[in-house]
Amino acid sequence: MKNWWKVLTVVLLLYVAVAGLLMPVPRLAILNESIRNLYFHVPMWFGMTAILVASVYYSVRYLRTPTPELDIKAHEAARTGILMGCVGLATGSIWARYTWGAWWTNDPKLNGAAVAMLIYGAYLVLRSSFTDEQQRARVSAIYNVFAFAVAMPLFYILPRLTDSLHPGSGGNPAFAKYDLDSDMRLVFYPAVIGWTLLAFWVAQLATRISVLKLKVYEKQLA
């Protein structure tokens, strides 16, 4: 069956929604039940990273052999990644309000993520500023590679070089030490896989619509 991974997405996400709320979690001060956000906030960033890798892959392939399909794939993957990133920023902001006491703090992890999202926002602006399709595809493919190369250090490397409130940055060891001795891994890993697959599903649907549009347009011209 060709669509087995979509079935897997549905099963995993339903499991995560139910087990994510009901499974036992470590009892920690300040975090309390909000530790369950781990199943929803963190997979957004995993999914975003995976789909942005796919976007760069298609951009590089476009630069080697330019076809409109590859440009569409790179664009829709990047758009899905930006959506996941925005959801990640929003959910993180809510979580920060009730654990750190502020919607936003000038934390290297948060600011790094925000700047990286702005860099990707510029990708969309850049794309929309061309009228010639081939020029748009080529320049935005090059910019996409640049954006990825700048964004990933902002997300994952620079915050680790300094002190940060955010788990997984500075001296903070993320949740590794908590979910080692608990059932959290049982939900967290399926959550990462499920939300990542959902990102690919959404990107695939968006791509197919754009390709279809292109084909209908070409036929009208012919």
Partner: peptide, 10 residues
């Protein structure tokens, strides 16, 4: 299948 899976897990 998802129902069975959910039951087994829950």
């Amino acid at each position: 299948r998802p129902v069975l899976l959910l039951l087994a897990l829950l």
